[in-house]
Amino acid sequence: DNLVIALHSYEPSHDGDLGFEKGEQLRILEQSGEWWKAQSLTTGQEGFIPFNFVAKA
């Protein structure tokens, strides 16, 4: 599955970004460039995340 774990917390800075906490698990929905579309397994919310803040779970 496309699961990743957050290496750092991220505060959203643009509409459509997904904020998350360090250690949170996310499911990657789309990989494109440096911003990936993801869904939080904690909150169920979707949005874009910086790819370098996460690692394969």
Rank of each mutant, 00 (worst) to 15 (best):
D1Y: 12
D1R: 09
N2L: 14
N2Q: 10
N2P: 06
L3M: 10
L3R: 06
V4D: 01
V4S: 03
V4F: 15
V4I: 05
I5H: 05
I5L: 07
L7T: 08
L7S: 04
L7I: 11
H8D: 08
H8E: 11
S9E: 05
S9I: 04
S9C: 09
Y10M: 05
Y10L: 05
E11I: 15
P12L: 04
H14A: 11
H14V: 10
D15A: 13
D15V: 13
G16N: 09
G16Y: 10
G16Q: 08
D17N: 09
D17Y: 15
D17L: 13
D17G: 13
L18H: 02
G19V: 05
G19T: 06
G19Q: 08
F20K: 00
F20Q: 00
E21H: 13
K22I: 09
K22Q: 10
K22M: 09
G23I: 02
E24R: 00
E24G: 02
E24H: 05
Q25D: 02
L26N: 01
L26F: 08
R27S: 03
L29S: 02
L29E: 01
L29C: 06
E30T: 10
E30G: 08
Q31Y: 14
Q31D: 10
S32R: 13
S32Q: 12
S32H: 13
S32V: 14
G33S: 06
G33Q: 04
E34A: 13
E34R: 14
W36Q: 00
W36A: 09
K37W: 15
K37Y: 15
Q39I: 13
Q39L: 11
Q39H: 07
Q39S: 07
Q39W: 06
Q39D: 00
S40L: 05
T42L: 14
T42A: 13
T43P: 00
G44K: 07
G44R: 06
G44N: 07
Q45A: 11
Q45S: 08
E46N: 07
E46F: 13
E46P: 02
G47E: 01
G47D: 00
G47W: 05
F48E: 03
I49M: 02
I49N: 02
I49Y: 03
I49F: 07
P50A: 03
P50V: 05
P50R: 07
F51K: 15
F51H: 13
N52K: 08
N52I: 08
N52Y: 12
F53Y: 14
F53V: 05
F53D: 02
F53N: 02
V54D: 02
V54Q: 03
A55H: 08
A55Y: 11
K56D: 10
K56Q: 11
K56R: 11
K56Y: 14
K56G: 10
A57R: 08
